[in-house]
Design a protein around this nucleic acid. Structure first.
Length: 443
RNA sequence: GCGAGUGUAGCUCAGUUGGUAGAGCAUCACGUUGCCAACGUGAUUGUCGUCGGUUCGAUUCCGAUCACUCGCUCCA
């Protein structure tokens, strides 16, 4: 019963995203392409805002985190070292009867299902979640390269250069926002699992004995970010503690969110130990150890990773924000009507302030106000339709504040600020407007 | 990847027992109104997901394919 209601919510979000220009299927006029999505005008504004928020919190506000913007295509040996290439380069076969999947090289009898003994197996196929391409005009094995399956590996690869360029001492971190690609077997749930997506990752390097301490620190920091910056209620997200750890990991948690389709991973905070830098040291032959000049010791840093999906963050924010309530209407025969509203945090709303002249006769003065506000906030002006209709349009895309320019504004130099969530209006002098909005948006 | 379902206007959907399509909402213009999807008049929009087959004729029947949703699987 609950799931039925939730499915509706997912459909509503998808429809709203399509209708109002948040997210479209990629290549839609060609029938779409499975696992790829485009962000439209409002979506791209919002995505950029979320990205900027993360970057601001993780890099700009901290003096021991450095930024990086590395390439999507790296030397193939990077993925040898990370284990991504070997992990899934096996031939796999599926049993058509019991649906089990096996590595062909591990089967006692490759012609029969190891589980139900059925001979009804699919042709062995190579499975690799990495997307393959070729560097240079010759398409052969020698020129094969891969699109990165996660954005963190180049951070490890560039560790040395970043440290030298910035003269950072342990502990310090390197952060990066960028695209990653995975040939997911089954893209699902709108943008939740797609084949091209954006990650926001930070690798924090410290001495081994400080690992658990920083693991706890980053876990707290990230939870605080969701609570305070993205306004997630405690009931909307939860911490999942990994019981089974990857062979290299010392500790791991996921921050999970209550998506319309169920709980899903949004961010991982992982204690990766010395694994990544050790692997790249071994495979590249470069000594990636850190020289501690105070003690004269060379140490292999331990890594704490925070890794979050930007697209999943977008979906989570939208799911958390979507609401339908009832509001008064002047439609004939109706007193109330459904109001669709996104309660987006003002910091990430695609439009933060909408400027609405009460009448088209006031367009010119409103336009001046719009141009002024647009220098400081993400703004939009709308002059078509009744004022009520324009409020509803803004509600639907989550605009927290509508500034209405009316017939008195010219004489009293004041406007009405209408609040998205309460629908209440406040008269404010134009000279105080910027301060008022800045304060309200930052809150 | 397997199984099931779905695909008609920007959105939600109706429809055609085979004769190339409609509604509501949305959008746009004009008028009116002047603070919560108001009203009136008018206007725009579809290769009926795509390709192929059967047919005099296919959006409708058949096949394939693509996409989405759900269940299983997968998520290193």
């Amino acid at each position: 019963m609950a799931s039925e209601k939730n499915l509706d919510l997912m459909e509503k979000i998808v429809n709203l995203c399509k209708r109002r220009g948040f997210v479209f299927p990629s290549s839609e006029i060609y029938g779409g392409i499975n696992g790829f999505w485009d962000y439209g005008p409002y979506g791209s504004r919002m995505k950029r805002a979320v990205e900027n928020l993360w970057w601001h919190e993780m890099v700009e506000m901290r003096d021991n985190i450095e930024g990086l913007d590395s390439t999507i295509i790296c030397h193939p040996r990077v993925w040898k070292a990370s284990g991504h290439l070997d992990q899934f380069s096996d031939l796999m076969t599926d049993c058509r009867d019991c649906k089990a999947r096996f590595r062909v090289d591990q089967m006692e009898d490759p012609t029969r299902c190891s589980n139900c003994k059925s001979p009804n197996l699919t042709e062995p196929r190579e499975f690799n979640l990495m997307m393959k391409t070729f560097v240079g005009p010759v398409f052969d094995e020698e020129h094969t390269a891969y699109l990165r399956a996660e954005s963190c590996q180049p951070i490890f690869v560039d560790f040395h250069s970043v440290r030298i360029a910035t003269r950072q001492k342990l502990p310090f971190g390197i952060a990066q926002i960028g695209k990653a690609f995975r040939n997911e077997i089954n893209p699902r749930n709108f943008t939740f699992r797609s084949r091209e997506f954006t990650q926001m990752e930070m690798e924090f390097f410290c001495e081994g004995e400080q690992g658990m301490e920083f693991f706890e620190y980053w876990k707290e920091q990230r939870i605080k970010y969701y609570r305070e910056k993205l306004k997630f209620a405690d009931s909307f997200f939860r911490i999942y503690e990994h019981e089974k750890l990857a062979h290299y990991a010392k500790a791991a948690i996921d921050i999970e969110v209550k998506f319309p389709f169920g709980w899903g991973e949004l961010e991982g905070v992982h204690h990766r130990g010395e694994w990544d830098l050790s692997q790249h040291s071994t495979f590249s032959g470069e000594d990636l150890r850190y020289m501690d000049h105070d003690t004269g010791r060379k140490i292999m840093p331990t890594v704490i990773e925070t890794s979050v999906g930007l697209d999943r963050t977008m979906l989570a924010i939208l799911a958390n924000a979507y609401d339908e309530d009832t509001a008064a209407t002047q439609k004939e025969g109706m007193e109330e009507d459904v109001r669709i509203v996104l309660h987006l945090p003002p910091l990430v709303a695609p439009i933060q302030v909408a400027v609405l002249p009460l009448s088209k006769k006031l367009n010119e003065s409103a336009d001046t106000l719009f141009r002024d506000l647009n220098r400081h906030f993400r703004c939009e002006q709308d002059v078509t339709g009744s004022i009520g209709k324009r409020y509803r349009r803004q509600d639907e895309i989550g605009t927290p504040f509508c500034v209405t320019y009316d017939f008195e504004s010219d004489t009293d130099n004041a406007v009405t600020v209408r609040n998205r969530d309460t629908m209440e209006q406040t008269r404010i002098g134009v000279t105080q407007l910027r301060d008022f909005l800045e304060d309200a948006i930052a809150r």
